[in-house]
Simulated scan of single mutants.
Amino acid sequence: MRKNFYIRSALSVILLMHSVVSIFSGDVNNFGRLYLDTVGFSPFGIYLAWAIKLIHLFSVFLIWYDPYVKAVSIFNILIFIFGIYLIHWQNGWYVVGGGTNGIEFNVLLICCFLQLMFTEYHSLKKEKRSS
Rank of each mutant, 00 (worst) to 15 (best):
M17C: 10
M17H: 03
V21I: 15
V21A: 09
I23F: 05
I23N: 08
F24W: 10
F24V: 11
F24P: 00
S25D: 06
G26R: 12
D27C: 01
D27S: 11
V28W: 06
N30H: 15
F31D: 00
G32K: 04
R33C: 06
R33G: 09
R33M: 06
R33A: 12
Y35R: 04
Y35E: 08
L36S: 00
D37C: 02
T38R: 14
V39R: 13
G40A: 13
F41N: 07
P43E: 09
F44G: 04
L48C: 02
A49W: 07
A49N: 03
W50M: 09
K53T: 03
L54S: 12
L54A: 13
I55R: 10
H56Y: 12
H56F: 13
L57M: 08
L57F: 11
F58N: 05
F58D: 00
F58E: 00
F61Y: 04
L62F: 05
I63W: 00
W64S: 09
D66F: 14
D66E: 15
V69R: 11
A71V: 13
V72K: 05
V72S: 02
S73D: 05
I74A: 07
N76V: 09
I77P: 13
I77V: 14
L78A: 10
L78R: 03
I79P: 02
G83L: 12
G83T: 07
Y85M: 09
Y85I: 15
Y85K: 11
L86S: 08
L86M: 07
H88T: 11
W89G: 01
N91T: 08
W93C: 03
Y94I: 05
V96C: 08
G97R: 06
G98Y: 05
T100Q: 09
T100I: 14
G102D: 02
E104A: 07
N106V: 10
I110Q: 04
C111Q: 04
C111H: 01
Q115M: 12
Q115R: 10
L116Q: 08
L116N: 10
L116D: 02
M117S: 13
E120H: 15
S123E: 13
K125I: 15
